[in-house]
Design a protein around this nucleic acid. Structure first.
Lengths: 318, 318
DNA sequence: TTGTAGGCGTTATCAA
DNA sequence: TTGATAACGCCTACAA
């Protein structure tokens, strides 16, 4: 492996001059800079990132930490974040589970975007002592930590209120993983809307944010003697599976049971009946997030990151 | 930030002893090891990975480089790979696009798993000079590079032959991104099967491996005067979108047009009619891949990585 | 079993 | 405009 030393020698300059040239810093004559760059090219030189990081405390990478690779919303979010970061010459690293914690502890990224409730506040705070963090899955008040959370409660509340107005009476809720804040807040909004008119939930079901999970819960519902007339699913994927299960069991939607979800994934438009949902602009969110990160890295003061817009889309499933 | 020096001082030992203790190496008395570990704990010490890497050339992370975060097959693959690696205390880093190239050039991982045709052979070979690589998207003969490619051509060939036997005559193909080897090889298998019985493709359509892409092509097909009687989609997601488009346009499946796909994603079972497809065991593949990587990292000689099993699953769409 | 010291490849300070 | 040199934090002979 060629080092900067080799480059310097080949170019006939000192190591420090080579460093200046390679990092495109001023105070190097054009002539010598060219000599250095040519030498680097010729040797196939790439700076050793560990050495550089050891010295500068910068890695050039941003980490996004998610709770799993499945799901359409992460792919949207990651896509835009990646695009925005690339414009600034920053790399994107994605990780999940235990790896995320390790990357945080090792400070392997210059900034972190967190979307995984399993990551402990403690690890986030440790990281935030030296580098900025944006959390998307919790509210966390701490210097250098910026929260941006979808207005789950508010949006679901509004949707359910509408449905109550439409005349539905027996509301069931199909939850995602209970520990996720998204799930909890959507449930809160659901409860609050019912509570205001003196209703109580007609059974609760535990899903896991996947189509299969929704299907399983749908099968259970289809077998009930006393069925709900409205099922709210904490995300669209479960709603898709659930609708499928109901149809497979001759339960008609929305005649027998109405269904709605959350996210606004495209799949919701590909099923029959099309899914009523709360559409969230994840692409725009990705832009908000990345731009804050970029400002933070440049040392600017910034205020909190805007949450994404969300709006209710009424379709045939309700 | 606490360094090993601080830990050593607090524990009242030399730096090297502290290092031995922290890395759980032999030749340290239990008593001093405990003192060191306690000191580390107390100071909230985490080894500086850059320094360590600079010295050892090991990062403790494995990189998976994919062409996008969408799609169910990557989530399956990544899930198992992550699980297997964790057992060995290795971290998983996922990246895409330009970031991947940077990570490779910077040697930010101890081994690479490549599933992105856009990454240049040149960058792979550079990386492979010092660290092992498994490529899943191409055949690349090179020391330290191990290929494992789904038997695309063979599997599609077999499927199409069966369909010819069933009596279909006018075969269309909906492709994925043309540059991907998966797409190319599936197309080859398609052509070969037709060719053997003197048939030629009845029109080709350019999709992009997404549901939306499939839907768009499906709309075009529905409008044709002379429609195919069989459409082969280079992956299941496109087939799902395509079937939806055909149904929306009153084309009946398989009566008017039969459809089949590739991958065996669960969504194929959630649509009506259920999708005939080639089911690939991506979960098992993830295990094969990770285990090879682990062996390689331990310095063992290994032979090529097994490709995943694939089998044709006949459902109602054909 | 423990300590001393050199060096991994860079950047950055200071002199020349 | 360039060069010598000291860190950055860690690991690892080698010596004690």
């Amino acid at each position: 492996m060629a080092t900067i030393k080799d480059v310097a020698k080949l170019a006939g300059v000192s190591i420090s001059t080579a460093s200046l040239a390679i990092n495109d810093l001023p105070n190097v004559s054009e002539a010598t800079k060219k000599r250095v760059l040519d030498a680097a090219e010729q040797l196939g030189y790439h700076p050793n990132l560990s050495a550089r990081t050891l010295k500068t405390n910068k890695t050039g990478s941003i980490g996004v930490f998610i709770y799993g690779f499945g799901g359409p919303i992460f792919s949207d979010l990651l896509e835009t974040i990646h695009n925005e970061l690339m414009k600034e010459g920053l790399n994107l690293i994605v990780s999940t589970g235990q790896s995320s914690t390790q990357l945080l502890r090792n400070k392997q990224v210059d900034a972190a975007i967190i979307f995984d409730t399993k990551i402990k506040d403690e690890d986030i705070i440790f990281f935030a002592k030296t580098k900025p963090v944006v959390v998307l899955d919790r509210h966390l008040k701490h210097p250098n930590v910026y929260s941006s959370v979808v207005k789950n409660e508010e949006l679901v509340y509004t949707l359910i209120k509408e449905m109550i107005k439409k005349g539905y009476k027996k509301f069931s809720f199909v939850s995602g993983p209970e520990r996720t804040k998204d799930n909890q807040d959507r449930y809160k909004g659901f409860l609050k809307a019912l509570d205001e008119v003196g209703l109580v939930p007609h059974l609760l079901f535990n899903g896991n944010f996947t189509i299969e999970g929704g299907y399983r819960e749908g099968e259970k519902i289809a077998k009930l003697d006393e069925k709900p007339d409205f099922v709210y699913c904490a995300n669209d994927e479960m709603a898709v599976g659930l609708i499928r299960a109901l149809k497979d069991n001759k339960v008609y939607i929305p005649t027998n049971i109405a269904v709605a979800g959350f996210d606004g994934i495209y799949l919701g438009d590909y099923i029959t009946p099309k899914l009523t949902t709360i559409e969230v602009d994840y692409l725009q969110w990705g832009v908000y997030i990345s731009q804050k990160i970029i400002l933070l890295l440049k040392g600017h003061e910034v205020d909190q990151v805007k949450p994404p817009e969300g709006k209710i889309i009424y379709k045939k499933s309700t």
